[in-house]
Structures are given as C-alpha cells and as structure tokens.
Design a protein around this nucleic acid. Structure first.
Lengths: 90, 90
DNA sequence: GGAGTTTACGAATGTCGTAACTATC
DNA sequence: GATAGTTACGACATTCGTAAACTCC
C-alpha cells in the first residue's frame, strides 16, 4: 500500500464516486479506477460495491478508510514537522 | 512522501548505512541513494550527514524517523486489519 | 586496497490521459 | 442521451540494477 493509493482511496470514499473524486483531485477517472482495482487486488478484498449512481463502501472499505485517513494525516504532519525542524536549525 | 521512501528511510536509519540497509532490504545501494536524495530534496533538508563509515542522522533525520516508524507500522496494521475484516465477511 | 556512497546509463515497471466501450437510468 | 465505471492503448515518469566513478581510511 502506497501513500498515493491511500490518498486516492480516501478521496473516492469521501466523494462517493470516481467522477467526483476525479474532479476534486484533477486526476482522470481511469487512473482512479486502476488504482482502486490494484488496491482491492492487493488486499484481496472488495472495497466498494459498484452501483449505478456511484460507489458504496463495503465493511472492509469503511474499515480501511479509518486507517487511511489517519495515515494520510500522519504523513502530512510528519512532512510539516520535519520542515519546521530544519527551519529551526538553519 | 511515499510509503516506500519511508520504509527505505527507516531501514537506512536503523542500519546506519546504505550498504547494510541494502543487504537487509535486498535493494541495490544505488536505489537507496536515489530515494534518499529525492526525499531530502523534497523536504528541503539534509536527513543524514555523510561519514566515511556510513551515515549519521541529522536532527531532522531523527525527527522524521519517529514519524516514519509510526507511519510504516500504521500502514502494516491497516493492511492486516482490512484482511481480517474481509475474512470475517467471507 | 577495502568499505561506503554517488553518478551514469539502460531496462523494466508504474502512472496517467484520451478514447472507446458497457451499463444504468 | 446522460451519467458512471471499466478497458485498451500509448506516452511519459519512476524505479531499479549493473557498472564505473569517487572518497576516506
């Protein structure tokens, strides 16, 4: 699981569809579809049920979301923290 | 910051050299060197001081390590959790 | 010369967008 | 026909290893 996959996944989850996430991320739906498929295959689990109007998270998808949100935040925090550390030194 | 960069970084930090991390990860030192350079450039900070016998972490490097270790663990935990969730369902 | 890192180069892989396709309303 | 997702294909970028430098003992 790579950070980018988790970022895309959280956007898809929060927007409820690839097309909405696509508009928000400025990434083509095909790319998101690919990443989602890969993630599901890597985990061996379906994360969303495909519905006519969009995507509905499965239980596994909802559980991953809780983790993914925290992980993405932690990464952003780490980056900011290191940058501020380096500013203190220099 | 991608997950792989953080995994490589923690290995380099823990082993204290590219060559030791290389042996542990089964990845060539050149790849680790490149990733480390990219990470330092992305963060705008030097993470290790290059010493004749290996690498010594800077303050920024040490601070990143604390974050990186937690993030890598969180990712592994998330993966296991989702897998166990899917087993419960099926 | 040995231990360690970096740089150069090419191969394999991954990522992404456009476009065509499918399905549902 | 409009909306939403997937698949096919090609272009571009990333990742990685081998090999050749380079530095410090």
């Amino acid at each position: 699981m790579e950070s980018r996959q988790l970022r895309y996944f959280t956007a898809i989850f929060e927007h409820g569809s690839l097309s909405a996430a696509s508009a928000n991320l400025n990434v083509a739906t095909s790319a998101l579809s690919h990443h989602l498929s890969n993630l599901e295959q890597q985990l061996g689990t379906q994360l969303f049920v495909r519905r006519p109007r969009g995507l509905a998270a499965t239980a596994a998808g909802a559980r991953l979301y809780d983790h993914a949100r925290a992980i993405v935040r932690a990464i952003d925090t780490a980056e900011q923290d290191v940058r501020s550390e380096s500013r203190e030194i220099s």
